[in-house]
């Protein structure tokens, strides 16, 4: 578990991303304080994954800036791990030519990669699949492996992109407990509202690339703009 001194504050300032004529993010700001669990929600196409891609350096913002621990920061994907930032992918993204253990070992940053990878798999309840190839495993198991691969680097900021997709109720409850017990800063993109409301300290709501609400789960639940974005104007 990370200590407070190791945690990092991540902030986005007026981030705008345009793809040709499409504005994927429109002046979005967010401060992710150390140790907090921040959810990012919104309908499909709202810009959630684009936001993650900006933080990871896969997408360069058209305007706006990022800071890490207060310093200006231009993210590059292969530097994230060194900075203590780990991300899971929506599409799982495992190396099918490698065993589960090897997949997780690629994410390890320390000398004892194999034992750490096994510990991370064990923590996610999938250590018995260590020698299997991920392509042959059920989707829910692969989701857990993806989580283990992110956790093995002992990240200070954990970015989870729809981790509950394809999981049943028991597995989502397990996932919620795991997210809480990491004790690290978590940025969570998720459609499963029960999970978001139960684990997040703060929630950002995006709609058509704009930030329409930011607040605690209770505040977001009571916000009519959020209901309108999800259910339409008639709601």
């Amino acid at each position: 578990m990370s200590t407070d001194s190791q945690l990092k504050e991540l902030a986005l300032h007026d981030i705008t991303v345009r793809f040709g004529g499409l504005t994927a993010l429109d002046s979005v700001s967010l401060r992710v304080a150390p140790g907090r669990i921040v959810g990012v929600i919104g309908p499909n196409g709202a810009g959630k994954t684009t936001l993650f891609n900006v933080i990871c350096g896969f997408v360069q913002p058209t305007s706006g800036s990022l800071t890490l621990d207060g310093s200006p920061w231009r993210p590059r994907p292969h530097h994230l791990s060194r900075l203590g930032i780990a991300r899971t992918l929506q599409g799982v993204g495992q190396f099918s030519g490698m065993t589960v253990l090897e997949n997780v070992m690629v994410g390890a940053r320390h000398r004892h990669a194999e034992s750490e990878a096994l510990a991370a798999l064990d923590r996610c309840g999938v250590a018995r699949y260590a020698d299997a190839h991920p392509g042959a495993l059920p989707y829910a198991i692969r989701k857990r492996i993806e989580l283990a691969r992110a956790l093995v680097a002992k990240p200070r900021i954990l970015m989870l992109d729809e981790p509950a997709g394809g999981l049943d109720a028991d597995e989502i409850a397990w996932l919620g407990a795991l997210i809480k017990e990491t004790g690290t800063t978590v940025l969570l993109v998720e459609h499963h509202m029960d999970l978001v409301m139960s684990v997040c300290d703060e929630i950002l709501v995006l709609d058509f690339g704009k930030s329409i609400a930011l607040g605690s789960p209770a505040e977001i639940s009571a916000n009519p703009k959020v209901t309108e974005a999800y259910l339409g104007a008639a709601a």
Binding site: C56, F58, P77, H78, H79, L80, S81, R82, A86, R87, L89, G93, Q94, F95, S96, G97, M98, V106, G107, R109, R149, A153
Partner: peptide
């Protein structure tokens, strides 16, 4: 095998 995923893993 997967350059972008690998970059994310450092």
């Amino acid at each position: 095998f997967a350059p972008d995923v690998s970059r994310l893993l450092g």
